[in-house]
Design a protein around this nucleic acid. Structure first.
Lengths: 351, 351
DNA sequence: GCGCACTATGCAAACGTTTGTATTCATCCT
DNA sequence: AGGATGAATACAAACGTTTGCATAGTGCGC
């Protein structure tokens, strides 16, 4: 620390104009000002309305969100809880949520809640009275600790993207289909020995992709070695390690393709394969679910399945809004369009 | 959309217990309950204190943040505005901020504010009355549009990481030194023809790194071709394009090393170099400022300069807290420790 | 037994809104 | 002309806290 330099005080601290000030200046009652500024009110003279508007403008009036919240009993704000801001999977979802919030005039409060290790889990403070509902993108929603904390919040909650505890409102993608799409693509390239590097099977998403994978394998009448199924955390390290497990067999027993449940894991996988001297896609094709610009920058650039994440976020937010308005929660599976981004980590099987 | 399934209404909607309820149950006055629950009050009997505490517990009382905020005139919350959640540079800073907030019991509101294209810039709504101050990590703080919006907020603001308009409170790193560190390292490897792929020169950070680079070059008594200075946006695409400019000269006029201002740009650079068939580090060494796990996964793994970003975030938050408490803003340059992470994108010059 | 200094607690106002209801005033109908 | 109607606006309560001040109760010295 060095080289500090003070700075002129930015504001002369004139206290903010209140509604009362506006009313006084416009020569009307408080209630009149309130109604006219929220403007969906008929029954006032245009002249009065204008007078109030001018007064507000002149004083630089901005409505005090807390007072409003207090009176209304609602915040017009929601929170989105993500386990890890570094995970590429979330930013697009967040943007979808953000868009929906902007439309409704809701404030979005993003909070990173690293998956809890028992009691040490961070419980973001101040959600308490600050938001009307929560979007939860945990991998570990089943964690009883997190679950009970969430319940204690007594707020409408929608689980999104990463799976949901039983009977909770949620909007998820058709993960069975997504996993199947990957398998179908790889089979289309001629592969028959396909491994699955799954995301955590403790998550709904992981389980459903697993199911989809298995069904697709069966549908194509393929066989699979037990070692070809490896479960990992949604992280670079998890992907690396699982890849060593999958490929750590004699070369003739290796799969010719690996379907990977997330981009972060795929990045780890690439790193492991390089270390093992396995050529991609020469020896093994690699394909990941999740799309992000960075996939194009790997060596080789990764073939991915792009998911409609933005729409996912938007729908989840909309459901949450509906619940805030008293509606019931639902469990919806979003069948939005996916897209295979063909890059260079996959190739037809030559034998 | 398909397969929707309704879900049992999660809450019987018992209205939240208020302080009045607690007081009633404990048989004390509202004010007593209030004081005892915020507990830094002497002068009450222990028995009363306990009675209140028990009542609160029994009713599951949680204080209503708005009411409190309204009364106190402050939110105990701050916002951090980042231009792009996809940029690796921010997550660590965010964690530092988060840590500081947790300690003070402040709520952190993260918001992505994509750099504005004139009027279309998104102004996150509801900052208005919801936070006591703002941390700004824009690249484009000089944008008059953003600046005036920020001023209109009339909130204490601290600029962090990406540079600050004149005379605004800020905490930045010693970017001159950082740039120099990179140059020194490359020179130590024997390089004398060093290019600089800068982050946007419209940012304070960009300018200061540029200055540091030039000074270091001069200090080592080196020469530099004009084409070796390329300015780019802080993005993958920006890095790619700038690299084509730098290397788009006859091979004998190419630099032997490139110092890059950010990891995202470096990722783009690697992609461009691969496309041009330039070997890294065989033909050219590449080193980037900013560290992130993903740097280890590039081909080749990138040598980087790790910045004390977490501390940066923490300090910025603390300064903001001080300003919220009425203190003056400062401009501080953080001279925290940096670390060179040596990987495989740099090599000694052989000639 | 009276005032005094405490100690422990209650009273009430205030923060800035929103909104149900009351009021004023002009107009119209019969 | 007198009451009913309706338009335009004002009154006042309420949301859930915090906090300055007032008050009731206790023990004490005289």
């Amino acid at each position: 620390m060095s080289d500090n330099e003070s700075v002129k005080d930015p504001s002369p601290k004139r206290p903010r104009a209140t509604l009362r000030d506006v009313a006084r200046l416009a020569g009307v009652d408080l209630s009149t000002a309130s109604r006219l500024l929220r403007n969906h009110v008929a029954g006032y003279r245009d002249e009065t309305r204008e007078r109030v508007q001018r007064a507000a403008e002149q004083l630089g009036y901005r409505t005090n969100a807390q007072a409003r919240a207090l009176r209304l009993g609602r915040q017009e704000a929601i929170a989105m809880l993500v386990p890890d801001l570094d995970n590429f999977g979330f930013t697009q979802v967040l943007r979808g949520v953000q868009g929906a919030c902007d439309e409704r005039g809701f404030t979005l409060l993003i909070s990173e809640v690293p998956p809890g290790e028992g009691e040490s889990a961070r419980r973001p403070p101040g959600l308490e009275g600050r938001v009307d509902g929560v979007l939860v993108a945990f991998a570990t929603a089943d964690d009883p600790d997190v679950a009970s904390w969430l319940a204690g919040l007594e707020l409408p909650a929608v689980f999104v993207q990463r799976g949901a505890p039983h009977a909770h409102a949620s909007v998820l993608l058709n993960e069975e289909r997504n996993a199947a799409t990957v398998v179908d693509y790889l089979v289309g390239l001629g592969h028959r020995d396909i491994a699955h590097l799954s995301g955590s099977l403790r998550t709904d998403t992981g389980l459903r992709r697993h199911r989809g994978f298995e069904e697709a394998i069966a549908r194509h009448d393929l066989m699979i070695r037990p070692q070809w199924r490896a479960d990992a955390e949604f992280s670079i390290a998890g992907g690396r390690e699982a890849t060593f497990r999958i490929m750590g067999v004699s070369p003739d027993k290796r799969p010719t393709a690996i379907a990977i449940d997330s981009l972060v894991e795929a990045i780890g996988a690439l790193s492991a394969l390089r270390e093992m001297g396995v050529s991609v896609p020469g020896d093994v094709s690699v394909m990941a679910i999740d799309e992000h610009l960075v996939a194009a920058q790997m060596t080789p650039p990764l073939t991915t399945l792009r998911l409609p994440q933005q729409e996912l976020g938007r729908r989840a937010a909309e459901m949450l809004f509906a619940m805030i308005d008293g509606g019931p929660g639902e469990r919806v599976i979003l069948d939005g369009p996916t897209e295979i981004i063909e890059r260079e980590s996959t190739a037809p099987l030559v034998r």
